[in-house]
């Protein structure tokens, strides 16, 4: 409980306005203060940890990518047709997976937060499940279904449908691995916002789609975007699952992370780091957007909490 200093009216009569100065926020409490030597050594250690584990590797990626100059870097990225294809493939697979997970995430969050039905908790657990499954195992599962020796393998071959070692499998596993992100982000947001506004919209005569687009979507947009960003980052970087189902056919089924590995295996370090630097830049952009969105979602949740608090 912060020590409150509330506004005092001119006559000294207390008014019940929110605190204008909060002691605990602007001034550390004496009993929480650590001695300076401890403070500085802990801050130093924390900076060293982040520096060694995170900053040095990131700088190193760019350093090694640009070691032979920007000209070579550009050539490494664009000169190799297999690398070009891997970039194209990643930018094809990721949006499809993310879009699928957005539709699923919104539907799942709607069902879970707006209705009560048996098996609701089980459903929530099922949504989390892909996080607990090793990507390699995920890839294996789809191979067992669609691979040559898989359960649907012979039937698919008969009908000349290629799933394993082809684009559909890449999309399937990427979607699987990133399945929880959007739903997990939306469920708490929609839970907090509650259904009052939606019920009001329906009672005013809106149909389902009108309610969804005019009330639900504006309320959850930042949380949704946040989920999309996380989902996108993971999809972009997915390696293990894609590795298992891709068959590593250069120029056909290699995504960017797989390309990084292949170039690395071929001892083409500059090429490998060039692709890695592109992925790292995307990660840094993701972080930046994430910070902005975090602030927005927190605001969304706070706004949702306020009217409840006043009743």
């Amino acid at each position: 409980m912060p020590t409150e200093i509330e506004q005092v009216t001119m006559h000294g009569v207390p008014s019940h306005l929110p605190p204008v100065v909060s002691v605990s926020k602007t001034h550390g409490r004496a009993a929480q203060q650590d001695p300076a030597w401890l403070r500085y050594s802990l801050i130093g250690t924390a900076m060293a940890i982040i520096g060694l584990l995170i900053i040095v590797p990131v700088v190193s990626v760019f350093y090694q990518a640009f070691a032979a100059g920007p000209g070579v870097y550009w050539k490494n990225l664009t000169g190799d047709s297999d690398t070009r294809h891997s970039i194209y493939l990643t930018f094809l697979v990721v949006p499809v997976s993310v879009a699928a997970n957005v539709v699923f995430g919104v539907a799942a969050a709607w069902a879970i937060t707006r209705f009560r039905f048996p098996g609701r908790t089980l459903l929530t657990t099922l949504i989390d499940l892909p996080f607990a499954i090793s990507p390699v195992v995920a890839g294996l599962m789809f191979l067992l279904l669609f691979g040559m020796q898989g359960y649907f393998g012979p039937w698919l071959r008969e009908h000349h449908i290629k799933i394993a070692f082809a684009l559909p499998a890449l999309i399937l596993v990427t979607t699987f691995v990133t399945l929880p992100f959007v739903a997990r982000e939306l469920i708490p947001v929609m839970e907090a916002i509650g259904s009052d506004e939606e019920i009001a919209a329906i009672s005013l005569g809106a149909n389902g789609w009108q309610m969804f687009w005019r009330v639900t979507v504006p309320n959850i947009k930042w949380g949704l975007l946040y989920g999309v960003i996380l989902c996108n980052a993971r999809a972009m970087g997915e390696f293990g699952a894609v590795y298992v189902v891709s068959g590593h056919i250069a120029g056909q089924t290699d995504t960017m992370p797989l390309r990084v590995e292949k170039l690395f295996q071929e001892y083409n370090n500059p090429g490998s780091f060039a692709v890695a630097s592109l992925l790292t830049s995307l990660a840094l952009v993701t972080l930046f957007i994430k910070i902005v969105l975090e602030r927005k979602t927190q605001q969304e949740l706070k706004e949702a909490a306020e009217p409840q608090a006043s009743t």
């Binding site: 924390a46 190193s60 990626v61 980052a233 993971r234 797989l258 490998s272 840094l284």
Partner: peptide
């Protein structure tokens, strides 16, 4: 520093592996 802590979530693991090996 606070936001950099999330980098391992955002960075593809292949990139992490590549740079750590080097």
């Amino acid at each position: 520093f606070d936001s950099l802590i999330d980098l391992p979530f955002a960075l593809p693991t292949a990139v992490a592996g590549l740079v750590y090996s080097s």
